[in-house]
């Protein structure tokens, strides 16, 4: 046990949390607009392969991340067309999107197995990185980590203080009333879905380009589902999504370290622990009175 360095552990925690944090933030915005997109896993893995392939071919991880966001958004656009224009059932469309994304990504990824992507540099924060402990934990990451953290603050502020956020919440709360007041319900939702897709794509690419970094089929391994659960148990609040993601990342890293340290617990129990503990803690946290957006998952049709 003494082999585990807390600074390293915390630094690894932040990295492990980033993919689900990104995906969950996107889904948070989608659900606050009243849409339930169960295709997060599919959009993540599509983003993972799009980002990976483009980064390998261009040699630039930055362009790779842009491509990942675009890939996730394109898949999300499919979902938006189905649910917002063709008025298809959101649950069924979301599940189909996940299956489609998994299949599409293995097809796209056929030529990329076993290749190493170009490395993503750590952000150079100069002397800040040299601070003992803190420098290691906080100031020695790549740009995406800081971007994800900035996104938490931005989404929180957007929902709480801006008119755009107010309209988004209004659409998710009561789409008929929002329509009666003249807001474009479908447009708001399509934009939210695209944003959610782009975020999921970034989250996926973070796995394939930085966290692992290589391409294997089905490499997101349920991270999209954890992101979905995170949004619900975080009571649709950005700050709690961050806590949940850190918790999940923390337990993941810890159990990996424990496995490496050869603890006398079967590996299967350790592997399932992040999922169990995260859900348990979030269930307890979500026991307050906050509730889902009232129009969540309901189909909107502007009649008359």
């Amino acid at each position: 046990m003494g082999a585990i360095d807390p600074a390293l552990l915390l630094a690894a925690l932040v990295v492990a949390a980033t993919p689900i944090l990104l995906a969950a933030l996107g889904e948070l915005v989608v659900e606050r607009a009243g849409v339930l997109n169960l295709g997060v896993e599919g959009m993540m893995i599509t983003g993972a392969i799009c980002g990976f392939a483009v980064a390998v071919n261009t040699g630039s991880p930055a362009i790779g991340f842009v491509a990942a966001a675009a890939g996730g958004a394109v898949l999300a656009l499919l979902f938006a067309l189905l649910t917002q224009l063709a008025l298809a059932n959101q649950v069924a469309s979301g599940l189909a999107l996940t299956l489609f994304g998994l299949g599409l990504s293995s097809l796209l990824g056929q030529g990329y197995v076993g290749i190493k992507p170009p490395p993503t540099p750590r952000l150079d924060l100069g002397p800040l990185s040299d601070i003992p402990f803190l420098g290691r934990v906080v100031f020695s990451h790549d740009l995406m980590v800081y971007l994800a953290l900035a996104l938490v603050a931005a989404i929180w502020a957007m929902l709480k203080y801006t008119r755009a956020g107010l309209i988004l919440r209004a659409v998710g709360e009561n789409h008929d009333a929002a329509h009666a007041l003249g807001y474009r319900v479908v447009r708001v939702r399509v934009l939210a879905i695209l944003f959610g897709g782009a975020c999921a794509g970034l989250g996926g690419a973070y796995i394939s380009l930085i966290r692992v970094p290589q391409w294997t089929e089905g490499m997101t391994a349920g991270a999209g589902w954890i992101a979905l659960a995170l949004v619900v148990f975080a009571s649709w609040k950005a700050g709690r999504v961050l806590l949940g993601a850190w918790l999940f990342g923390g337990v993941t890293v810890l159990q990996l370290n424990l496995q490496a340290a050869g603890l006398a617990i079967p590996v299967e129990y350790l592997s399932m622990s992040p999922y169990l503990i995260t859900i348990l803690v979030l269930v307890i946290m979500s026991a307050d009175k906050s509730r889902a957006p009232a129009s969540l998952g309901r189909i909107f049709h502007a009649s008359q």
Binding site: L166, D176, L181, A294
Partner: peptide
């Protein structure tokens, strides 16, 4: 409706066009 409101037309709806989870001020702002 924005154009109608700009022209000075306001409407109180039969089925309230209110948002339960938002505050009174937020409802008015919308």
């Amino acid at each position: 409706p924005s154009a109608a409101r700009a022209a000075g037309v306001a409407m109180v709806f039969q089925h309230f066009s209110l948002f339960d989870a938002l505050s009174v001020a937020e409802n008015v702002a919308l």
